[in-house]
Every structure is written in structure tokens, then in C-alpha cells.
């Protein structure tokens, strides 16, 4: 059977495409590596892809990144599944990443996770029914002196108490926006960086 190249051969869904700004940024990043080694740009480009497509990497998204980098799809799947920041399943608009490692744990990270679970009515790893929050626990985020802490998008929320954490979550909920590690504004305004 003839393959339709505008359709993913795995899911049969239509291929996705970056915005013009994201595409320009991806090409700029690819030039940072030696000739012929553009695969090196895969991690930054997958971050951009998560920002572009609702915070997670679908098979279609990964296939698209493979065509951008001129590599096999399997090479993208292999990498995407290795790194903990990439979500391979749909997530909430706002992914809460609570540090659970030693120093944060000594300062009450475990209790903080229980607090968030209770507040949102979900367990670690789950997404709220309204699609607003996904709760993840992650390993040390290099912020142990301001423990306990959590990351949402690029922002670290530090020295958390239950009250502070609750207020932060309410704020995100009120805004209701999608938050990604590589902020969307940074994709739009990347032209201040020339190389």
C-alpha cells in the first residue's frame, strides 16, 4: 500500500508542524553543532516541541522532530524515553514537579506531596479531571538550600510551606494557562539571540 507521508505510519494521525518562530529557533539551534551532527540538537528541540504541543510528546510530534533532524523516528523515541523531563503521555496544563530527594525529604517533601495530593484530589502521577494539574515527583533539582521546593515550568517555588504551596497552585489555576519548561514567550522572542 502507498504510504501517505502527511500521515503518521504508526497512529494514522495527521503530522504536526511547528509555528514559524519555533521552526526558526530550531534551525538556529541546529547550526550550533558541527557539520552533519545536527542530531545533537535533539534535546533542545524536544523541549521546544513540548512547549508547542500541550506539554507532551506524541508519536506524531516525535516523527516530526525526526524529519526536522533528518534522522530515523526510532532515534527520537529512544532519546525521548530516556530523559525524565519528556512526557510521553498527555499531561495537565501545569505539571507540578516536587523534589523528593534527600535534602528536600529531610525538610518535609514527603508531607508536601501528601498535602498536594489531598488538595488536588489526585495521587502522584495523576492528572486532575479538569486537565489543569499533573503531579510528578522528581529527583534533586539543585535547590536543596531552599527546601522543600517544587518546579512548575521554568520557575522554582522554594522554601514551601503548605500555605505557600496552596497559594501558588491557586494562582496557576486562576490563570489557567499551559506552562512549559521552555516558555512560549521565549520561543516567540528568540530573535534577541543571534546564534
Amino acid at each position: 500500500m502507498q504510504q501517505d507521508s502527511s500521515v503518521s505510519k504508526y497512529s494514522g494521525k495527521k503530522h504536526v508542524k511547528f509555528s514559524d518562530e519555533a521552526l526558526a529557533l530550531a534551525h538556529k539551534i541546529m547550526k550550533r553543532y558541527p557539520e552533519g551532527k545536527q542530531k545533537s540538537a535533539i534535546l533542545p528541540i524536544l523541549h521546544i516541541a513540548q512547549a508547542e504541543f500541550e506539554g507532551w510528546l506524541s508519536v506524531e510530534t516525535m516523527d516530526y522532530v525526526a524529519t526536522l533532524l533528518k534522522i530515523q523516528s526510532i532515534e527520537v523515541y529512544e532519546v525521548a524515553s530516556f530523559y525524565s523531563m519528556f512526557n510521553l503521555k498527555p499531561v495537565g496544563k501545569c505539571v507540578i514537579e516536587v523534589c523528593r530527594t534527600g535534602p528536600c525529604w529531610l525538610m518535609g517533601a514527603e508531607d508536601l506531596v501528601r498535602f498536594i495530593e489531598k488538595k488536588l484530589g489526585i495521587k502522584e502521577g495523576q492528572t486532575t479531571p479538569d486537565g489543569m494539574f499533573t503531579l510528578k515527583t522528581v529527583e534533586c533539582l539543585a535547590s536543596c538550600g531552599t527546601a522543600p521546593m517544587m518546579q512548575i515550568g521554568e520557575t522554582y517555588h522554594e522554601n514551601l510551606t503548605f500555605e505557600k504551596c496552596g497559594a501558588v497552585l491557586d494562582e496557576y489555576k486562576n490563570k489557567g494557562e499551559q506552562v512549559s519548561h521552555w516558555r512560549k514567550e521565549r520561543i516567540k522572542h528568540h530573535s534577541d539571540i543571534h546564534r
Partner: peptide, 15 residues
């Protein structure tokens, strides 16, 4: 990658 905020600080400094 988690230090995305500092990533952009460095980008700016390099520029």
C-alpha cells in the same frame, strides 16, 4: 534541562 531559567540567563550573557 531543569535549569531552563539559568539556560536563558547564559544565552543572554553569551549574546
Amino acid at each position: 534541562g531543569e535549569m531552563m531559567f539559568q539556560y536563558h540567563i547564559l544565552e543572554k550573557a553569551i549574546q
